[in-house]
Design a protein around this nucleic acid. Structure first.
Lengths: 126, 126
DNA sequence: ATATGTACCATTATTACACATGGTACACAT
DNA sequence: ATGTGTACCATGTGTAATAATGGTACATAT
């Protein structure tokens, strides 16, 4: 599995990582049970910060593409390929489009919608 | 009708204007059909920019609290008092809370929700 | 000892937006 | 001419969030 990072790419580094690992799963370059390089190892190879790699791994694990097994390392999730089909961001966009379309029909300004949105996001913080 | 603006108040100037005019309607200080000071006039009295006053008037007209009649000036809307009861911002907050609660249940990060939100808001721009 | 994932603390640069400001101009009717 | 609402152009300032960086520390098991 070869991973390449393009610093000039406007896409965030952690997103590039997520995308490439997902692609590798889809193309059978890595299969369920295969071990992934450790966070520090991969960060060292790509010459980027380990926190950036950790962020990508965290997202991939949440989506059940990979599985972190503590000190034993990280592995491809048994149902990784099936879970790759579900694009959370696409789903988020769909749901938000529905909601925002409704709000705009009421005559709400973009500013008002943004402000109300930020208000909700900030108040639900523990 | 007396309107006062507090520059030290963190609340935006145009919001202060909207709130005070709504309050004046609710307290019967101004009644349907009454004329409001012109945008330039009020801006001059309060020593603020006319665009700020225009923004407040625009929002009030959208919510049918006032009615702009072109060269004749601006007047209190016939059903101003009833329309004061409906708080658009409160309604926006409710709807967005529903939507965001659903998204968070899916495990989406605050960052991901914000990014998807901005994506939707920017794509609907003409 | 070494290496694993993970959880905190923090700073920096960039980006985007809200807010308010100023100027200019138009169509309209008194 | 004057004043009405309205629509563009534009700028500056402050705030807030993302993205990425760095350091430190912990429990785990080899």
């Amino acid at each position: 599995m070869e991973i390449e990072i393009d610093i000039d790419d406007p896409m965030p580094l952690f997103t590039q990582l997520v995308e490439q690992i997902k692609r590798a799963v889809n193309n059978n370059l890595i299969k369920p049970g295969d071990a992934l390089p450790s966070i520090r190892q991969l960060a060292n190879d790509l010459e980027i910060n380990s926190k950036t790699v950790a962020k990508a791994y965290r997202l991939l694990e949440r989506d059940s593409i990979i599985q972190a097994k503590g000190y034993r390392g990280t592995f491809v999730h048994p149902e990784a390929k099936a879970n790759c089909d579900f694009d959370l961001n696409h789903w988020l966009t769909e749901k938000l489009t529905e909601a925002i379309t409704l709000l705009k029909k009421s005559g709400a300004t973009d500013s008002e919608i943004r402000i109300a949105f930020n208000h909700v996001m900030n108040n639900n913080k523990n």
